[in-house]
């Protein structure tokens, strides 16, 4: 099940995403929580200490490799499986949820 939680800022979408993720994890499902927001708060809403946010891993920019198929179509694929990305760059959150923060890629690129 791949769920996207969409909404305006202030709608409560981050609280919903975090709470839903942990409740699904409590049902025994491995849950990957992905913070796609440029103002990353999902970790804190999941129950991780805000003070530690600065030490969470940064996603390297080369995770997405571009290649050209024999028929000339350009395509992109991950340079390693999602499970490995989650293991190497994810943060362990309560109830076994694994958190990935996407925004940090943007920061790396824009910096």
């Amino acid at each position: 099940m791949k769920i996207a939680v969409a909404g305006k800022g202030g709608s409560g979408k981050t609280t919903l995403a975090a709470t839903l993720g942990r409740l699904l994890a409590r049902k025994g499902r491995p849950v990957l929580a992905v913070d796609g927001d440029s103002n990353p708060n999902l970790g804190v809403c999941l129950g991780l200490p805000a003070a530690e946010a600065a030490s969470w891993p940064t996603l390297p920019r080369d995770l997405l490799a571009e290649s050209t198929l024999p028929d000339g179509t350009r395509t992109t694929r991950l340079s390693m499986p999602t499970a490995e990305i989650a293991a190497r760059f994810g943060v362990a959150a309560p109830d076994g949820v694994r958190l990935l923060v996407m925004g940090r890629v943007a920061h790396a690129g824009a910096g």
């Binding site: 499902r29 849950v31 992905v34």
Partner: peptide
């Protein structure tokens, strides 16, 4: 990258989308 990571997730993925 987000799209590909979600695609490769093995069970549940919950994405907090950008507002």
């Amino acid at each position: 990258l987000l799209g590909e990571i979600v695609a490769g997730a093995e069970d549940v993925a919950v994405v907090d989308m950008e507002a």
